[in-house]
């Protein structure tokens, strides 16, 4: 999953981005609203984490412009904690509101919930052909056997499950799993897929030649 973090406090931005990456998200960073808008114009994101008080273009201005173009879920992360602030934020088009200081796990849980909802899957645990995927705990098991997947591998299978019955091209997958800092390596995705297949021992991922990969139910 690819996330855009818009936050003007550099230390916090770096920390959130690092924590997200360690959890298998691809993360792009922007330090104000206008930078965020340019990022949004280049890449497609699964969710956006947005600070409200920023120089140049603040969160409200960003949302006003962003919402005219995209439907990507937006989570506001703000130090303003009054009811009015939250209501204003949600009315501007945000999908969730979290006040600073926050617990990382809560941020991840809310982010996960936002992505799940935007893709139309309500359930946190999905079982396909005997393979159980838990989006919350990021655990995969086949029958009773736990499968150890790396963060990248999990995010690939997560993407394919969430967008099941749809063919995802290599570049689709790449875009969702790697952020702008990564150089495009055409066979990186293939390497991950073959690793997943080996670890699962059940081949739920079909290859569509010349198109990409799909998990069909």
């Amino acid at each position: 999953m690819r996330i855009l973090v818009v936050e003007d406090e550099p230390d916090l931005l770096r920390t959130i981005a690092k924590a997200l990456r360690e959890n298998g998200y691809a993360v792009d960073e922007a330090t104000d609203g206008s930078e965020g808008l340019s990022c949004a114009a280049i890449s497609r994101y699964d969710a956006i984490i947005l600070d409200m008080m920023m120089p140049v273009m603040d969160g409200a201005q960003f949302l006003a412009k962003f919402r005219k173009l995209y439907r990507t879920p937006v989570l506001i992360l703000s130090a303003r904690d009054t009811v009015e602030n939250r209501v204003d934020g949600l009315n501007l088009g945000a999908d969730d509101y979290l006040t600073k200081p926050f617990a990382m796990v809560e941020l991840f849980a809310r982010l996960q919930a936002l992505i799940r909802r935007s893709l139309g899957t309500g359930d946190n645990i999905v079982t396909i052909q005997g393979v159980t995927i838990n989006f919350g705990s990021k655990l995969v098991s086949v029958g009773r056997r736990k499968v150890e997947l790396t963060a990248k591998e999990f995010s690939i299978i997560e993407l394919l499950v969430l967008k099941k019955n749809r063919v995802m091209s290599r570049s689709d997958i790449f875009e969702h799993v790697y952020d702008v800092n990564e150089d495009s390596m055409s066979n990186l995705v293939d390497v991950h897929i073959s690793n997943i297949r080996k670890k699962l021992e059940v081949d739920i991922i079909e290859t569509r030649r010349g198109l990409g990969y799909i998990i069909s139910v």
């Binding site: 406090e9 230390d11 916090l12 920390t15 959130i16 924590a19 130090a79 006040t99 600073k100 200081p101 926050f102 617990a103 990382m104």
Partner: peptide
């Protein structure tokens, strides 16, 4: 809150 958030995060 901002520095507090940084410390916590």
């Amino acid at each position: 809150r901002t520095p507090l958030t940084v410390i916590r995060s």
